[in-house]
């Protein structure tokens, strides 16, 4: 459900994957314990090299994440060479042929809604005879009447007293 504070599956995607509310500078730098703050300025000065390396790696990570998240339309060109394409297609053909040997035809599931390829043929078909239509109608009416006449007859008392003095 999309309610506020709901604990459903959306949570996983929001925690793991970057999304529109993910702050770029949220986790790596500002929350880092090695970041020089007002309180531990002195201790930060003791390990300038480590600190710089941490910041550098954090920045690199941010850069990498940003590069992954950027929608880059210029990268839409295919990098596949013609011969690579043909090689791979051939390999696929061989693999598919091997897989197809043990392939079982899936059972067709019954469907209520089916698309009709030639609608005009069905529409131009002769209608059902009036006699059949009457029979259908009367059968339906009988069924409806029978349903309406179903009644519950109570045989015993609905409320039973359990030995109340």
């Amino acid at each position: 459900m999309g309610c506020c504070f709901s604990n459903d599956d959306d949570k996983g995607s929001q925690v793991g994957d970057p999304h529109e509310r993910t702050t770029l500078l949220g986790n790596p730098v500002s929350n880092s314990s090695t970041r020089p703050g007002c309180d531990d300025y002195g201790s930060g000065m003791k390990y300038p090299h480590n600190q710089r390396a941490d910041e550098q790696s954090a920045l690199n990570r941010i850069l990498h994440e940003t590069a992954t998240n950027v929608i880059d339309v210029s990268a839409m060109n295919s990098h596949l060479e013609q011969h690579e394409y043909l090689d791979r297609a051939r390999q696929y053909n061989q693999r598919v042929a091997a897989t197809a040997q043990k392939y079982t035809y899936p059972q067709k599931r019954p469907s209520l809604l089916l698309d009709l390829p030639a609608t005009e043929k069905n529409l131009s078909a002769s209608p059902i005879p009036q006699k059949d239509l009457k029979l259908l109608k009367s059968a339906c009416e009988n069924a409806v009447n029978a349903l309406q006449e179903i009644k519950v007859q109570h045989q015993e008392e609905l409320v039973v007293q359990f030995g109340i003095p």
Binding site: L80, V96, D115, T119
Partner: peptide, 21 residues
Amino acid sequence: MSQIDGIHAVLITDRDGVPVL
């Protein structure tokens, strides 16, 4: 494909567009 009117092709490819079937 025969179930649906107007369908021209079904292709199963890999991420690089190489047809598998």
